[in-house]
Nucleic acid binder design. Sequence first.
DNA 1: CTGAAAGCGCTAACAC
DNA 2: GTGTTAGCGCTTTCAG
Lengths: 346, 346
Amino acid sequence: MIPQNRRITIKHVAKEAGVSTQTVSRVINVRPDVSPETRQRVLDIINQLGYQPSELARSLIQRRSYTLGVVTAGLKYIGPSRTLNGITTKAEESGYALLLKELPSFTSNEIQPLLQFLLARHIDGILWAVPEIGNNHDWVKQGLTGIPVPVVYLTMQPHPDVSVAAIDNYLGGVIAVQHLLEQGRHCIGHISGPLDWWEARQRKQGWQDTLKKAGFPVSDASCVEGNWSSSSGEVAFQQLLQSYPDMDAIFVANDQMALSVLRVAHRLGIHVPRDLPVVGFDNLSESAFFWPALTTINQNQLELGGRAVQELVAQIEVFQRNEQVAPQNVLLSPDLIVRESSVVQK
Amino acid sequence: MIPQNRRITIKHVAKEAGVSTQTVSRVINVRPDVSPETRQRVLDIINQLGYQPSELARSLIQRRSYTLGVVTAGLKYIGPSRTLNGITTKAEESGYALLLKELPSFTSNEIQPLLQFLLARHIDGILWAVPEIGNNHDWVKQGLTGIPVPVVYLTMQPHPDVSVAAIDNYLGGVIAVQHLLEQGRHCIGHISGPLDWWEARQRKQGWQDTLKKAGFPVSDASCVEGNWSSSSGEVAFQQLLQSYPDMDAIFVANDQMALSVLRVAHRLGIHVPRDLPVVGFDNLSESAFFWPALTTINQNQLELGGRAVQELVAQIEVFQRNEQVAPQNVLLSPDLIVRESSVVQK
DNA sequence: CTGAAAGCGCTAACAC
DNA sequence: GTGTTAGCGCTTTCAG
């Protein structure tokens, strides 16, 4: 039997230093009203004992845990992980702890137990880092009143009543098509992501609007829906070649599917970029080494996560002062990375 | 001014139901010693009020938080994220919450403040999901006594005194080389990962030992060190072509670097697999769509994370009963995925 | 400057 | 079956 590992408490320190627990508390919290000698003596004892105040007890009485609830999904994909990376980094910087929950699927709709779970642990705010897909955010419209802490949503349609941080996917689509137009192409096809995803719809809309605005036709035949995976990209591309034989360039909604386009094009003797410039989306670290190197739209998910934390922490500050919090929308611009797949060498 | 959002407590429920808090507590904890009528009445009130017991207060008094501290690093890379995915899934299943900390870098050595942080929040155990690199695990050998909760380490050299869960990278190297030997190749080169990484050393050792055992020579000229990145793979491969002109097959320590090998080989007119079969490591979701599709070693990081949680939870059970915990090592076998890059079509 | 008392929200240990 | 008392480890009053 090992002796029960009891925690060193403020009492032990107080007793050892011959002061009240109150005084120790004052020292811990760096309050001015302690005499220098007392302070030093207490600090010495603290070091000597290796005392560490319990954040749990503190959270309980202060009604504030300095902890953020983070709800994510799809960590096995690189996008959500990059965002989480940004969240952890900024949270560390802001002095907040992170309670992590991953939904079993992107479209999970079992929100209530999750919220209860987080609230039971007295989190100060929630970061809802699950992309908007199908109706998986419907509860937002209703359930808003139910959550007694600030919430910031990532990657959903900006909304006047809630705080949202997102990448401007629409702009990404615009930039991609503009680039292809600049290459002198007019028949620009599109392989979209699954259209129940908000991000996929935005990218497609950017593609469509930009082509229309430039005076070039867009039809059902010029776009095929994929599901983000490389294998779906392969299928979609072959379909597109059939339905849109005039196509002279292509914008693919993510790099994984674009990889398949490159592969199939090569197999069929379609030269990229000469016969078919290709632009992807995401800027995977591998994309620069595809063959040919892939032109793509880069989205800074690291910054997205950071900005979301920043916004949430700001809201928490306001909320804790019992003031009204004003929803804030943060929209980050993606940028174009030009590589071999889209520009014909002179 | 919004009214202070005070929590509904056990007291409110007790008062409303006309019983003591103790009885409410009994109902919450599904104790048998409550009359059916009382239980029902209390449950009704709980539902009506939307009462949610505070896990914080519970943790405090029970000296048990059902929370695991997870320390990770490099979430922007897919490996650590996949592992985390496994961790979240199994933790959910086991009823544990997760407090997440990401180190600023893989080789961060600032352990003490981190441990304090976690212990201050009364975590029941720690999952150290940071790969062993350079001397970033040196503190394990010393600091063991300092940690008053069970710890399970992921991806480090198994050690008799601590619990480790890891993929058998050595075996991965062995399998890869065996496969190439079966293709009738004998001069098998290697591009390793950075050799301060334990995983990289293991893969290299597997390569080396298997070749030697088969009676084929291994020299300094047949291995070049990369740094996992695609660009380092490019450099390493060109170096290897110089230093090992007889090379007739290659085992690359990860898929990202292998991608560069495929690319450079193509540029130089080296046909893969005819002239040079290639085997990678990691099984990225893109690898199946490289050109040619990449043969690779698959490591199940999802399962790794899950097994680590399982082991940690088991240790916590023992520890909480004040019994001695016996360190346990879990070693998972990777497996070979054969694709076009290593097998010459008949 | 310092301490005593009360309480955050809950449960263990004992009464009855 | 149910209530009372005490206390987890800390901070907020309010005295002095």
